[in-house]
Structure formats: structure tokens, C-alpha cells
Simulated scan of single mutants.
Amino acid sequence: MELPLEKNKTIRKVSVFVVDDSLVYRNLLRNTFSQDGEIEFLGAAIDGKFALPKIAQLKPDFVILDVEMPQMNGIQTLEEIKSKFPETKVIMLSSLTQDGAKITLKALEMGAIDFVPKPNGGQELALSETLELLTSKIKALSQVKPSVQTSFQTKNPAVKTIQSLSEKNCTICAIGISTGGPIALRQLFSKLSPDLTGSIVIAQHMPPLFTNYLAESLSQAAHMPIKEAEDGEVLKKGVAYIAPGGKQLQIINGVSGPTTRVFNGPEEELCKPSVNILFRSLAENFPKETTAIIMTGMGEDGYLGMKELKKNGAYLIAQNRESCTVFGMPNRPVQEGLVDEVLDVERIAEKISSLLQRTQS
């Protein structure tokens, strides 16, 4: 459907179909989308069995897909959608449970573009935040080409080298990432050298439970141990640490070297974990030993942290626009010239391998 603008100008609404066995959620989403001037609500179904014929008929831009449903669950439905309607983008609705987290991570590996967690219980504020988050994701992701979801290849990526790598002695690689992160990180870790002599720390925007399963999932593709960070760990060479969902992560100067601090701090940029908080801790404690990478994601989390890192002498890299699911978080650091290089995922992996192997040369 197209909306009239000025003379002879129109804007196309983003069409959405909902698949959820909960009548409450179907009605909530119907009301939310129907009242939004940029979204067209096409309909809803109780599970995949009833949804697939409707999706074939209506051809929605997005399907909002519940993870747990009778007869035909979210994973089965997603597999059919990606096979028969590859142009349709899928956002998963996931319960905040261990099973929900595990299945959601699998859905992202299968081609779902993103997910939104369902709040536990009927908390009105949490429910309102969920609906607002889902709406903002639909609008932000409506411009994404479906091929970008699973392919990070790019032609002639723009590269800007400012600092001589031979002068760097990196022992820590810090990564900030959000929407599109699980797929990008899986590709990244599959390409990293198996004999890194530095440590990797990651702030991926995710709720509790999800980051533990993300670490497990990435470990299957990696040549190094990957774990959810615990408070008070001394960073080990050749190990990657993921900030726990729903908590903040800092790297502080401990008695035995760089040490994790995991704590229940407030959100920053509506994020917990926050890339800014992780990056600022490294800017304060280990800037000369750090290379920081800002990758695919919505919003601007990480920008302020990168400014501090840049000022204190860290080496900065951004994922390029072509390989990002959403070129939000890298955009401002690139536009303002904060980063030393702009690379696709494969070349980021090569650069990490080069920088973190250089520590013993």
C-alpha cells in the first residue's frame, strides 16, 4: 500500500504478517501495527500450518514469527519461508527461557534477520517496550536487502589506513555488535587464525540467557574457546569472552593483568550490555594495547567509546556498509573519520589475526 505525500509523491508502507499461537499477542500486534502510519498489518495465523498459504497469497515484507507454537513451530515455519519466499524478512518472537534462547539462535543461523524477546509475565511496561522495539526494528530493517542477511561478500571494500600496523602491539581485540551479529560473528570466528596470542572481548546486544547459547553456537565455528564472561576473570590469550546479556562488562587493570568486571549497571543507549561501557573501560586502562571494532547494528552504541579510544591511541576498525545487516553503529565513527580502516567481515578476521599474532613477534 502507498501513502500520498506531496504532489505525485508516495511512500510505501511496510507490510507485516504475524504468526503466533497467543491470541493476546496477535491482538496486541494487530493494534500496534494498525495504528502505525508506516506499517500495514496484513493479518495473523496461529501457527505455520495456517500461515504459509496466507504468506504465499499476501507476500508480506515481514513475518513476525513466534518460536514456540503447536503443529508447526517457528523453526519449521522459518525453514519453509526461507525456502519458498526468500524475499520475506523474518523477525522471531522469543520467550526469555533457555529453550527459547537456544531455538532463537538457531533461527538466526537459518536466516531470520533479527529477534525480539517476549517479556515474562504480563508486565505492562516491558510489553510496551517490546512492541516499541519490534516496530523500530521493522522500520530499520525494511531497507535491508534479503541477500545481505546471510552473505557478507563485498566488492572492493573501502579501506583507509592511517596508522602503521607495524607499530601496534595489540593484546586485546574488542568488538561491539548488534543486529545481524550472530551471523557476522560466526563468519568472523570461522576465519580467525587458530593461534592468536591475544584476547577477544565482545559486547553483543542480547538479553539474559541468549549470550551463553551464542558462545556455544560460535564455538562450533571457531578455532578458539569462546565463553560468556564471568566477573573477575583474568583475560587469557587465545580466548574470546562475550558480555553476559542483561549485564555490563568492563575490562579493568587487575593484579594479574586485564580482568573482567561484570556488573548490573544501568543501560546506556538503551543497551545492556553496552558497547560504550566496554570500549571506555579499555580506553581508560589499555588503549595502546587495544584494537576496537564496531560492527553491524542499529543505533549509535559504541560511538562515544570509540571517541575515547581514538583519543587515547587505540587502533579502530569499522565493518563496511556493504557487509552490514544494518549500517547504524559503524556509520558515525566512519563518517567522522574515527576509524583507521573500513573492512568487510573476512578482512576484519584477517586483520585481527595479524594484530593479535604480532604480540609475540
Results as ranks from 00 to 15, higher is better:
I55L: 00
A215Y: 11
D66A: 01
K59I: 11
Q149A: 15
I226Y: 00
I81H: 07
V159D: 15
K7V: 10
D36W: 06
I251H: 01
R12I: 04
L23R: 15
T135N: 08
M298A: 03
T104Q: 00
S95Q: 09
G74E: 09
L249A: 00
S151N: 15
M306Y: 00
F115C: 00
I103N: 04
V239F: 07
T161D: 03
G257L: 08
K59H: 14
V24A: 13
L28S: 01
A229T: 06
K82L: 10
L141N: 00
P146M: 04
Q149G: 10
E40C: 08
I183H: 15
D340F: 13
Q204C: 09
M329W: 01
S190K: 13
N31M: 09
K54S: 13
N253Q: 14
A51T: 11
L282M: 05
Q35Y: 12
E284R: 11
F263R: 13
R280A: 05
H223D: 12
V14S: 06
K168M: 13
L42S: 10
D61L: 01
K49A: 07
A44F: 07
L96D: 13
H205S: 12
T135F: 06
L270G: 10
M329S: 02
E129L: 12
E6Q: 11
T291A: 10
E300L: 09
F85E: 03
P208I: 08
K155E: 14
C324F: 05
G180A: 06
I226D: 09
R347C: 03
T88I: 08
L192P: 06
Q98S: 14
G257Y: 12
S15N: 01
G257V: 09
M69E: 00
A56Q: 13
V116C: 12
L3N: 10
D344S: 14
S217E: 14
I39P: 04
T104P: 11
L23N: 15
K13A: 09
F327D: 00
R347D: 15
E38P: 02
T290V: 05
A229N: 03
Y25N: 15
T325E: 12
N320S: 08
L218H: 10
T260H: 08
D344W: 00
G100H: 08
V67W: 12
K272E: 05
T161M: 10
I242T: 05
S274D: 02
I293S: 09
Y25H: 14
L29M: 15
F41D: 04
T291Q: 12
F85V: 00
F17C: 08
M206V: 04
L131D: 06
V148H: 06
S354E: 14
P182V: 05
N169D: 10
K168R: 15
F279C: 06
Y25K: 11
P330C: 05
D301H: 12
L134M: 11
L96C: 09
Q98H: 04
L185D: 04
I317D: 02
S199V: 08
L65Y: 14
A243K: 07
V326A: 07
A112D: 02
T150C: 10
E336P: 02
L96I: 09
K106T: 13
S136Y: 14
L249Y: 02
D114M: 09
I202V: 14
R26D: 01
S94G: 04
S147T: 14
A56N: 06
S164Y: 00
E132A: 10
V116H: 12
S166E: 15
Q357W: 09
K84M: 07
I200L: 11
L270Q: 14
Q220A: 12
F62Y: 06
L343Q: 05
R332C: 03
Q57F: 13
